[in-house]
Measured scan of single mutants.
Amino acid sequence: MQRVNMIMAESPGLITICLLGYLLSAECTVFLDHENANKILNRPKRYNSGKLEEFVQGNLERECMEEKCSFEEAREVFENTERTTEFWKQYVDGDQCESNPCLNGGSCKDDINSYECWCPFGFEGKNCELDVTCNIKNGRCEQFCKNSADNKVVCSCTEGYRLAENQKSCEPAVPFPCGRVSVSQTSKLTRAETVFPDVDYVNSTEAETILDNITQSTQSFNDFTRVVGGEDAKPGQFPWQVVLNGKVDAFCGGSIVNEKWIVTAAHCVETGVKITVVAGEHNIEETEHTEQKRNVIRIIPHHNYNAAINKYNHDIALLELDEPLVLNSYVTPICIADKEYTNIFLKFGSGYVSGWGRVFHKGRSALVLQYLRVPLVDRATCLRSTKFTIYNNMFCAGFHEGGRDSCQGDSGGPHVTEVEGTSFLTGIISWGEECAMKGKYGIYTKVSRYVNWIKEKTKLT
Rank of each mutant, 00 (worst) to 15 (best):
S107K: 12
T190Q: 13
S70C: 04
K188W: 12
C145S: 03
P375I: 08
I262E: 01
N310F: 04
N283Q: 09
S350E: 15
C268P: 00
A308H: 10
G254D: 00
A26W: 02
T215D: 06
C18K: 03
K152C: 06
V263G: 00
E259P: 08
L23D: 03
Y115R: 04
S99F: 10
T85V: 09
E171R: 07
N343S: 11
N42H: 12
P12A: 14
I112H: 14
N127F: 11
S114V: 08
N306V: 07
E124R: 06
V257H: 00
Y115K: 04
S70E: 10
E10M: 13
D223E: 08
Q237A: 07
E456Q: 12
F345L: 08
I256F: 00
S350W: 15
L14C: 12
A37E: 02
L244I: 08
P333Y: 00
Y444I: 06
V263K: 00
D198F: 09
L23V: 14
L369A: 14
Y352H: 10
K438R: 11
K440A: 08
E82G: 07
P12N: 12
E285Y: 08
E79V: 07
L20P: 02
L367T: 15
H314F: 07
L318M: 04
A317G: 03
V243N: 05
S217W: 09
L52R: 06
E281V: 15
R358N: 09
L321C: 02
T209F: 09
K137I: 06
T29G: 15
H314E: 04
N452P: 11
K347W: 04
E73I: 01
A397R: 02
S365G: 07
V56P: 01
G229F: 14
K387W: 05
V154D: 09
F395E: 00
V374R: 04
G409E: 06
Y305W: 10
I284H: 07
T215R: 07
N42E: 06
A164H: 12
G355A: 13
G253F: 07
N310Y: 05
R3L: 13
S107Q: 11
N343P: 03
R83L: 13
Y391I: 05
G50E: 04
N151H: 11
T417M: 04
T389L: 10
V77H: 05
T271P: 14
K274C: 04
Y341P: 04
C155W: 01
P235A: 10
N166V: 02
T461G: 09
H361D: 15
C335N: 00
A317D: 00
G421P: 02
R62K: 03
K188A: 15
K188R: 10
R358W: 06
N295F: 06
I428P: 01
G94I: 12
Y201W: 10
C102D: 01
C252K: 00
G363V: 07
Q167I: 05
V353Q: 04
K274E: 13
A337L: 01
Y312P: 04
D111K: 11
E79P: 06
H400L: 10
W240Y: 03
W356N: 03
F388S: 11
V183P: 10
R83H: 12
I428Y: 05
R3M: 13
S365Y: 12
E171Y: 09
I336C: 02
T190A: 14
K68N: 10
D110R: 11
I309V: 14
G409S: 11
K51S: 08
E53F: 00
Q219V: 12
G160V: 01
A337E: 02
Y450K: 02
K459E: 12
K438M: 09
F55K: 09
I429E: 13
D200F: 11
F399W: 15
T287R: 07
V273S: 09
F87T: 02
D249V: 07
F251E: 08
V257P: 00
Q216P: 12
E73V: 00
P324F: 04
V227N: 11
I40Q: 08
R3E: 09
F55E: 09
P333K: 04
